[in-house]
C-alpha cells in the first residue's frame, strides 16, 4: 500500500512537471498573445493540479493535505478570472486576435 501510493504520487508529480514544461515551451513558441494564454492555461490547471494531487497522496490525510486542497481551489478560481481579465484587457486595447474564420466574426 505504501509502495503503491509513493509510486502513484511520484507519477503524478512527473506528469504535472511535464505539463508545466510543455506550457513553458508553448509560451515561447506560440505566435500571439491569445494563443500564448492557451499555453499558460495548461500550466495553471493541469500542471498545478496534478502536482498538488501528487503531494496530497504523498502526505496522506492530514491538515497539510486539506491546506493543499484549499490552495488548489484558489489556483483554479484565481487563474480563470485572471485569464479572462487579461483577454478582455487585450480586446479593450484594440488588440485583435488574428483568427481565421472571418465569416462568423460579423
Amino acid at each position: 500500500m505504501d509502495i503503491v501510493s509513493s509510486y502513484l504520487s511520484n507519477l503524478m508529480l512527473i506528469v504535472g512537471s511535464l505539463f508545466l514544461l510543455i506550457g513553458a515551451i508553448g509560451l515561447i513558441r506560440m505566435p500571439d498573445v491569445f494563443t500564448r494564454m492557451h499555453a499558460a492555461s495548461i500550466m495553471e490547471t493541469a500542471g498545478a493540479s496534478l502536482i498538488i494531487i501528487g503531494l496530497i497522496i504523498n502526505t496522506g490525510f492530514t491538515v497539510v493535505s486539506l491546506k493543499l486542497i484549499v490552495i488548489m481551489l484558489a489556483i483554479f478560481y484565481i487563474s480563470s478570472v485572471a485569464t479572462h481579465a487579461l483577454a478582455r484587457a487585450c480586446i479593450h486595447d484594440n488588440l485583435k486576435p488574428n483568427a481565421t474564420n472571418k465569416e462568423s466574426d460579423q
Binding site: 506560440m30 505566435p31 491569445f34 494563443t35 499555453a39 486576435p97 483568427a99 474564420n101 466574426d105
Partner: peptide, 18 residues
C-alpha cells in the same frame, strides 16, 4: 493542446466566435 504545442512545424489556426 500539448500535442499542438509539441508538433514540429507549428500550425495553429485560432478561431474567434460568439
Amino acid at each position: 493542446v500539448s500535442k499542438l504545442i509539441l508538433k514540429f512545424p507549428l500550425n495553429v489556426s485560432p478561431k474567434y466566435f460568439k
